[in-house]
C-alpha cells in the first residue's frame, strides 16, 4: 500500500492539480517535502511511493534528493539550524555567530546535538543579508526564518524546543 498516497491524498491531489494532467512529474518537489514531514528526511520507501504516484522511476526521484539541499536522505537533528554564513552575512559577523553557537551547544559545525534535537550547519545566502546574523530552522513541517539573532536568544529558542519535546 502506498502510505503517502493514502495519508495525504487531499494534499497530493491539490498539488497535482496545479500542473497539466500529463505533467504530474512537476509535483515531485512538493511530494518530497510531504515525505519529509514524517521523519525530517526522505526514506527509500518514500522514494518508491512518490515514484509510483507520479509514474517516475525511483531513480529519477532520488536524483532530486541529491541535487537540492533542502531534501535530506538521512536523519539529523529534529531541528536543523541553517546559519547563513555567506559573504554578506559573514561581513556582519555570521562566521563568529556560527562558531559561538556551536561552541555553546558543544558540537562541531555540521553536527547534531547528542539528544538528536538540533543540527547546526552553515548555508549559502538566504536573502536576509541586512538582518545578519540570521538562520532558518528546517523541520519536517517546513522552514522558518530567525533574523538579527544573538547566541543568547538562539539558546533560548532551543530551550523552548526542549520544553516542547518534554510535553
Amino acid at each position: 500500500m502506498n502510505k503517502i498516497a493514502e495519508k495525504y491524498s487531499g494534499d497530493i491531489e491539490k498539488i497535482i492539480a496545479k500542473y497539466p494532467p500529463e505533467q504530474k512529474r512537476s509535483a515531485v518537489m512538493s511530494l518530497l517535502y510531504i515525505a519529509q514531514r514524517e521523519d525530517g528526511y526522505v526514506t527509500k520507501h518514500d522514494i518508491n511511493e512518490i515514484a509510483e504516484i507520479l509514474e517516475m522511476t525511483p531513480t529519477e526521484v532520488v536524483a532530486l534528493v541529491g541535487f537540492y539541499t533542502l531534501y535530506h536522505d538521512k536523519q539529523d537533528g529534529k531541528y536543523r539550524i541553517q546559519v547563513c554564513n555567506d559573504l554578506p552575512c559573514a561581513l556582519r559577523g555570521a562566521d563568529e555567530f556560527l562558531e559561538n553557537l556551536c561552541e555553546n551547544l558543544g558540537i562541531q559545525v555540521g553536527d547534531t546535538t547528542e539528544d538528536g534535537l538540533v543540527s547546526v550547519e552553515g548555508v549559502m545566502c538566504l536573502a536576509a543579508c541586512d538582518k545578519a546574523p540570521m538562520f532558518q530552522v528546517q523541520t519536517g513541517d517546513g522552514l522558518k526564518y530567525h533574523e538579527e539573532m544573538t547566541v543568547e536568544n538562539t539558546m533560548e529558542l532551543i530551550e523552548s524546543w526542549k520544553k516542547e519535546e518534554k510535553k
Binding site: 522514494i47 522511476t57 525511483p58 531513480t59 532520488v62 541529491g66 541535487f67
Partner: peptide
C-alpha cells in the same frame, strides 16, 4: 526509456546512481 540511471548530488560531487530493484 529505462530511466534507471541518474546523477546524484551536484557540482564536483556528482555521482552516477541507480535506485532500481
Amino acid at each position: 526509456d529505462d530511466a534507471v540511471l541518474e546523477f546524484f548530488n551536484r557540482g564536483r560531487a556528482t555521482d552516477i546512481i541507480t535506485n532500481s530493484e
